[in-house]
Every structure is written in C-alpha cells, then in structure tokens.
Design a protein around this nucleic acid. Structure first.
Length: 226
DNA sequence: AAGGGCTCCAACCGCCAGCGA
DNA sequence: GTCGCTGGCGGTTGGAGCCCT
C-alpha cells in the first residue's frame, strides 16, 4: 500500500502516513547505518523521508533494526510473557526488554491476539497450560504487583517501588536476581516444575544481553519509578 | 464463487517524563 | 521556575488476508 499524504489543514508540514514502502525502508536504513539512530526528527528530515520522527523511530525499532526476531514465538517465550505479564501487567516495553529480539509492539499484539484469548478461555475451563494458570486479575490486565499495592509510575495510586523489587543496582549476576524474586512469588507444584525451564530461558535472554544489561525501556522505567 | 465476519499486526495517537534553553 | 521540544510508552485503529457459510 502506498503511503497516503495527510494534510492537517493548518498549513504545517504534511507527512506521509500509513504503510511504509520498501523504498522508504531502504532510505531510513541507509541513513541510520551512516548517522545512527538518534535525533529522530533529524533522521526524518535528513533522510529524505516525508515522515515524522516518531514514525521513523517506530519503523526502525519495530521492523528495521538488526536482530529483530519476527513471529514464531516459542513456548518458552510464551511462558515468560505470561509470567511477566502476570507480574508486571501491560508494561510491554519492559516485558519486551526481557525477550531479546522481540519488540513491545509484537508482544502487545501477541498478547492481545493469542494469550489474552487463551487465558480468558482458561478462566472457564480448567486446563493445565502455563498461561491458563494465571489469575483472573492477570487475565484482566491487573498484575500481581498492582494487586499488592504496587505498580508503575503510570498509575499514581500505586506505591510499588520498582527499584526495591528488582533492585537493578545490584544486578551483578547478569540480571538474574529479578528472575529468582519473580519465581519465588509463586507457590504450588507447577512453578517448581517450570522453574528450570524459566530460569534456562531467562539465562538465555540475559546472556544475550551481557553487553547491555538494561534496555532503554528498563532505564526509562527506573527513571519514572523513582 | 462470493461476501460477510474474523484475525492479526503495522502503524497511528495521545499522553507523559526528561531535558535543555 | 517554566516552557517547548523530543523520545518513549500503552492503547487503539484500520486494512489485508483468511475463514466460514
């Protein structure tokens, strides 16, 4: 689909909107390869794309950037998403930060189209899959953290301190402390059985992230949570 | 075969926080 | 201190493709 031109009627610059063309992708990729992915407004203007900076940023982060994994979300990844969602709620960027190569948008979409449905189904029928063992609150988008009086900075009514909970400052062991705390939250036999799988998955995730322990999303969450 | 409904996902939108002037 | 700009986030939308009748 060709991008459509949208006139805002206010005499301001009119940007292309809608699906990106391969030519636009090429231009954006070329520009970022040379100048880097920063100053998105500059990227948008200097790359010769008739797009706003936000649009360029989104396209790069969700589609063009290297090491993006697309589709084929594994069982381990799915388990991790479900568990993280149970704990964190709809903090897609934070969840995505724990799944190398996955974007917040992809996880959000995956949740809305696959997992949410599965969980809702699980609420009515007793089953044994990981995602269906999550609580009704989780299925309704309410995290454990939020239920227990916590949450992120986007909810002013909650007082949960992210830094205390995860203690990022002491994540010297490849950031696995949080995983242990996370897994300790759950009792019951299932978590014991799943623990090794989850830890293994988390290990893979974090070993891939040795060179940059935290993503920008994590850092932003920390900033906001303070 | 057709057309109506459904699903999935790329992209947009509005809001908010950080930062520099 | 405040104001405007920018980047990042979660929620939502729109359209292409698939499925069902």
């Amino acid at each position: 689909m060709a991008p459509r031109n949208v006139n805002n009627g206010a005499g301001r610059k009119v940007y292309n909107k809608g699906a990106w063309t391969s030519e636009e992708d090429r231009k954006l990729t070329q520009y970022i390869e040379v100048h880097g992915a920063k100053k998105w407004k500059t990227v948008a203007t200097k790359s010769g794309l008739n797009r706003c900076g936000k649009s360029c940023r989104l396209r790069w982060l969700n589609y063009l950037r290297p090491n993006i994994k697309r589709g084929n979300i594994s069982d381990e990844e799915e388990d991790l998403i479900v568990r993280l969602h149970k704990l964190l709620g709809n903090r897609w960027s934070l969840i995505a930060g724990r799944l190398p190569g996955r974007t917040d948008n992809e996880i959000k979409n995956y949740w809305n189209s696959h997992l949410n449905k599965k969980i809702n189904k699980g609420k009515t029928t007793s089953t044994s899959t990981a995602q269906e063992r999550t609580t009704p609150e989780a299925a309704a988008g309410v995290s454990e953290v939020e239920r227990e009086g916590g949450g992120g900075s986007r909810n002013p009514e909650v007082t949960f301190n992210v830094n205390e909970f995860f203690d990022f400052s002491t994540e010297g062991t490849n950031g696995l402390e949080w995983v242990n705390k996370f897994l300790e939250l759950d009792d019951g036999q299932w978590i014991s059985e799943k623990r090794s799988t989850l830890v293994s998955s988390a290990l893979t995730s974090f070993s891939n992230r040795l060179n940059s322990t935290f993503t920008g999303s994590d850092l932003q969450w920390r900033r906001r949570a303070v």
